[in-house]
């Protein structure tokens, strides 16, 4: 195996095109290097994306946020404006692995590793994040929910790279949250993950809502039926109960060493409701500034 650390997007795309399926782009490498070690993947070329300016850094503007696809979780966690605007996204990102993993793991890697259980992805989907994809065919904007096809597989074409993620400045009354179930408190892969983003009118009615689930299907899924349980309604216990029921119904998980199908389906509803409850608190008129307790 060879390693290359191109300094520009053109160079990276050139290398990836040249070597084809035997090349693998790498951001933080926290999944990829494990796959190398266990022999799950055996690329001939690793293309390190961390030296490419377009994939680094976070821009916070009045129009919204641009998060480089190779930015580490630790840097994302330190970006206070982003945490203020999209606490659910930041908290979900911070749940990826340990402090050590946070030093390397990125949103781009978490998405393109294409695990159904990736923690940041349901939160990004719920928040309506869009990613910029650049490849030999040019540049396109892709909603995050359209990137993962199935376990380990994306919809990206050969030599295409996720360059950054875009999130708008949240409108007044917006709140988002992510909840996950793991058997321990840290270090596990999600058995179920649930991201919710919603917007409340001053009247307290829910104007908009997006719900996404992780680890309950072959890929992270957006569950509009669950969101509709809240939209144009007051988010009372009955509405939240329906959101939970819809989330459970939408789950189509597998039995595996981490959890049973029945368990995942049921807990998907519980977590969707809990995430919605937290998002509602955050959407309240006077959002508390600063970072919430981890």
């Amino acid at each position: 195996m060879e390693y290359a650390a191109p300094r520009s997007l053109d160079e990276a795309i050139g290398l990836l095109s040249q070597v084809g399926v035997d090349a693998r782009p790498m951001a933080g490498g926290t999944d990829l290097l494990v796959q190398l070690r266990t022999g799950t993947r055996r690329p001939k070329l690793l293309v390190d994306l961390k030296q490419i300016p377009g994939l680094c850094g976070i821009d916070c503007g009045s129009q919204g946020f641009r998060i480089g696809a190779a930015v580490s979780g630790a840097e994302i966690g330190e970006c206070l404006p982003l945490r203020e605007a999209w606490p659910g996204v930041v908290e979900a990102t911070e749940l990826i692995g340990s402090t050590q993993i946070q030093g390397r793991a990125s949103l781009g890697g978490n998405l393109c590793n294409a695990s159904p259980a990736a923690d940041s992805v349901p939160a990004l989907i719920a928040a309506g994040a869009v990613c910029t994809v650049i490849g030999p065919g040019g540049r396109r904007e892709v909603p995050v929910e359209e990137v993962v096809r199935g376990p380990g597989e994306t919809t990206l074409s050969e030599a295409e790279i996720v360059v950054d993620f875009r999130l708008p400045q949240p409108q007044e009354g917006t709140g988002d949250a992510y909840q996950r179930m793991i058997p321990r408190t840290e270090m596990d892969i999600a058995i179920v993950g649930a991201g919710v983003s919603l917007r409340l009118a001053e009247s307290g009615e829910c104007l908009a809502c997006r719900v996404a689930l992780g680890a309950v299907a072959a890929r992270p899924i957006r569950v509009d039926a669950a969101a509709e349980a809240l939209i144009d309604r007051r988010p009372d216990a009955a509405a939240l109960g329906e959101l939970a029921a819809q989330a459970s119904a939408a789950a189509d998980p597998i039995d595996d060493k981490r959890g049973t199908r029945a368990y995942r389906s049921r807990v998907a509803g519980v977590l969707a409701r809990r995430a919605a409850e937290m998002a509602l608190r955050r959407a309240g008129p006077r959002r508390v500034a600063g970072s919430p307790a981890s």
Binding site: R184, T185, M187
Partner: peptide
């Protein structure tokens, strides 16, 4: 592996 053989971690 330690990922799925779940020994207690400090925060547990």
């Amino acid at each position: 592996g330690f990922l799925d053989y779940r020994m207690p971690v400090a925060s547990d």
